[in-house]
Design a protein around this nucleic acid. Structure first.
Lengths: 156, 156
DNA sequence: CCAGATTGGTTGCAAATGCAATGATTCTGG
DNA sequence: CCAGAATCATTGCATTTGCAACCAATCTGG
């Protein structure tokens, strides 16, 4: 019998596990405590720091396809956190902007998320942390250059 | 206004993006071509290399909660890839095992997944790859030691 | 030995998701 | 300038998911 390629040591598995676990920790703050989904949080994150952003750009920068963007934005709008308008330059596109309510909420949540994240990262020896940053950047680049990159399903 | 913590540079974001993109590439082979979900694939992966495994251990090693394990196992059983039995030692537990059909399918899929994965990894400079391995291991350890670890939602 | 607490698995239901189809707007070639 | 192709967003529908309730088996203290 072919030797058991231990799942524990299988790279893709470790990556997925780490990312899921990390994500879950963060979701505990913006999700469990503020009722935002991961997609909503990402959109809010992007929109909070800018006056406005087009739906297309939004999708490209979140690895979310257009349906996900559309629906997450719809929910954020219902909650009064962002506004949605038709872009005058190209009326197929939507122009999203963070409302003051949204910015306020974001300003309230972000520090807590950062705290949670750095609680974990500070538990790592600095060299390991640097290695992770470096390796992650290289991985992102490798995926980008290796994979065909379909029109939807953007990468980053 | 507080400086815009660029999402692109935000560590949790990079981790999530990379993991999602990587996972999607792999899912293209076991998912799109063989109709397995991520959870089914993981269970099959674990079970293929061992005679049998209890539901509890299965859950602990997959970051899947009991509902996910139960449902994924149910689907795998319907497909004839694994068998499910009540554990005689503790009749609350289930004892899963990979059928020969399941092992054959796994043997067919695994090389393809490995190829896809190494296509990406080989595109990385070896030092970066090593850094990623190292950083990832440290991250997993940091999460494990930092986070409370609820009874369900196991980590690894 | 028994009643209540615990642990593990499944199920029901509401919400979320993926995918294909649709509608609206813009672009292209002739 | 116009007809067909292309691009975006949205919607409908079937499937999946998450959460809580539930059932079954085991454990605990008295």
């Amino acid at each position: 019998m072919k030797d058991n390629v231990q799942l524990d040591g299988f790279f893709p598995y470790k990556l997925a596990i780490a990312a899921e676990a990390f994500s879950r920790c963060l979701m505990n703050v913006y999700g469990r405590r503020y009722g935002l989904s991961r997609e909503e949080w990402r959109l809010l994150f992007l929109l909070a720091g800018v006056k406005e952003m087009t739906s297309l750009e939004l999708g490209q920068r979140t690895t979310l396809d257009k349906v996900q963007v559309s629906r997450a934005a719809q929910r954020l709008e219902e909650k009064g956190l962002i506004s949605r308008a038709i872009a005058q330059s190209d009326r197929r596109l939507r122009l999203y902007a963070c409302t003051s309510t949204g910015k306020a909420l974001f300003a309230e949540i972000l520090p807590q998320v950062e705290t949670q994240a750095s609680d974990i990262l500070r538990a790592m020896p600095p060299p390991d942390r640097a290695a992770l940053e470096q390796g992650l950047a290289a991985l992102l680049y490798a995926i980008e250059s290796t994979q065909p990159q379909t029109t939807d399903q953007p990468l980053a």
